[in-house]
Amino acid sequence: MPGSKYLSCRCAVSTFVANARPLVDVISDESKDVLREVNVLSLFSMPALPQNVPLLYVLVKMYKRDKKCFLLGNHYLKLTVNEVAMILGLPNRGREFPFSRLPCMELSHKDLLNEMHILVNEEWSENLEQKRVNLLIRYLLIVFLFPLKTLKIPKCLGVLEDGVGALRDYNWPKAIHAFLHLQLDCLSRANVVREADTCLGYFEGCSAVLLVRDAFISEKMIYYL
C-alpha cells in the first residue's frame, strides 16, 4: 500500500495534545468548565491517533469529485456535516464561518508555541486567565481543525479575539467539512493528472476526522484500491 512518501499531513493529534497540555493544566476549573460548555475541553485530551497517511492516501484516490463521495467497490460513501460534528463533539449550528486559507498572517506556528510557553509561566491574574483560554481556542482552530501545509496562520483565524464567543456563534463542523472537501477535490484532481502513486504533497485541514470516520473499513478500502 502507498506510504507517506506520497502524501503528508500536519494534523497530528498526539503533537497537538502534547503542546496544549501544559496550558490546559494551569487554567482554572472555572475556565475548564467554560471550555467544556462549548464542547472543546475533551479535544485537548484526545487519545493518540496515528497519522495513518497510507489510509488518507487511499481515501484521496477513492474520492469522486462529481459526487463528493468515496467510491468503495460499487458503493458511494459520503462524509456529512453531522458526522464531522459527532466525531469532534461540536454542535452543528450557528452562523457560517467565512474560512479562507489566504491571506496569512506574519504570526507563525512557532510564535503560538512561544506565546503558550510564556502564558504557562506567568503569575496568575484574571486578565491572564482570559488570554490563556483564548489562546487555547486559537491553537485548536489553527493547529488541529484548520492546519495548513506551510504552518502559516490564516488571518480569519488569527484575528479572533473572543475565542469562546466564536465557538458559540459559528458552525465549525460546516466550515471543517467544507475545507476537507476542498482539499479532497484539489488532491483528487492532482491524482488524475499525474501518474499513479506519485507525490501529492500536503493534505490540509483536519484529516483526523476522515481517519476516525473510515478507519473501521480500512481493510476493505485497501482491497478495492
Rank of each mutant, 00 (worst) to 15 (best):
P2D: 09
S4P: 12
S4E: 13
R21V: 01
P22D: 04
D29A: 14
K32F: 04
E37Q: 14
V40E: 01
V40Y: 00
S42I: 00
A48R: 12
L49Y: 06
N52R: 15
P54T: 09
K61W: 01
R65S: 14
D66I: 00
C69F: 00
N74E: 14
V81H: 00
E83L: 05
I87F: 04
P91A: 04
N92V: 10
G94C: 12
R95N: 13
F99M: 03
L102W: 10
M105T: 08
E106A: 09
L107F: 15
K110H: 14
D111A: 14
N114H: 10
I118C: 08
L119V: 02
N121T: 12
E126Q: 12
I137E: 02
V143C: 09
L145V: 07
K152A: 12
P154R: 11
G158H: 13
G163L: 05
N171H: 06
P173Y: 01
P173T: 03
L180G: 07
L180W: 08
L180P: 04
Q183P: 00
Q183K: 05
Q183M: 10
C186K: 13
V192I: 15
R194M: 14
D197K: 13
C199N: 14
S207R: 00
A208E: 01
L211Y: 03
R213Y: 04
D214A: 10
M221D: 01
